Amino acid sequence: SEEELEEFAKEVLRRGITIIVNGIRITEVEIFVKVLREILEKR
């Protein structure tokens, strides 16, 4: 749901943790923004 997305976004921003994806360091915020864009483009 959109509320869950908002909560996830807030949690990500609070933690600001960097994770490893395919050997490249990407912040969770960047991943969230990318996923959010993909979701919005599909609408």
Rank of each mutant, 00 (worst) to 15 (best):
S1Y: 13
S1T: 11
S1E: 06
S1Q: 07
E2F: 15
E2L: 15
E2K: 12
E2C: 15
E2R: 12
E3L: 13
E3Q: 12
E4A: 12
E4Q: 10
L5K: 02
L5C: 14
L5F: 07
L5I: 06
L5Y: 05
E6I: 15
E6M: 15
E6V: 15
E6F: 15
E6Q: 12
E6S: 06
E7V: 07
E7Q: 11
E7L: 09
E7G: 05
E7D: 07
F8V: 02
F8N: 01
A9R: 03
A9L: 13
A9E: 01
A9S: 03
K10H: 05
K10M: 09
E11V: 07
E11F: 07
V12D: 00
V12G: 00
V12W: 11
L13Y: 05
L13F: 15
L13A: 00
R14I: 04
R15Y: 07
R15C: 10
G16M: 14
G16K: 06
G16S: 08
I17C: 14
I17L: 12
T18L: 14
T18Q: 12
I19S: 01
I19A: 01
I20L: 08
I20W: 09
I20E: 06
V21A: 06
N22Q: 06
G23L: 13
G23A: 11
G23T: 05
I24C: 11
I24D: 03
I24P: 04
R25N: 08
R25Q: 09
I26E: 02
I26K: 02
T27K: 05
T27M: 07
T27S: 11
E28F: 07
E28W: 11
V29F: 11
E30T: 09
E30Q: 09
E30M: 13
E30D: 09
I31Y: 07
I31A: 14
I31G: 06
F32E: 00
F32H: 01
V33P: 00
V33N: 01
V33Y: 04
V33I: 13
V33D: 00
V33W: 10
V33C: 11
K34P: 00
K34Q: 09
K34D: 02
L36I: 07
R37Y: 04
R37A: 03
E38Q: 10
E38H: 12
E38P: 01
E38I: 12
E38Y: 15
I39T: 03
L40A: 04
L40Y: 08
L40I: 08
L40T: 03
E41Y: 11
E41L: 14
K42H: 10
K42C: 11
K42N: 10
R43S: 07
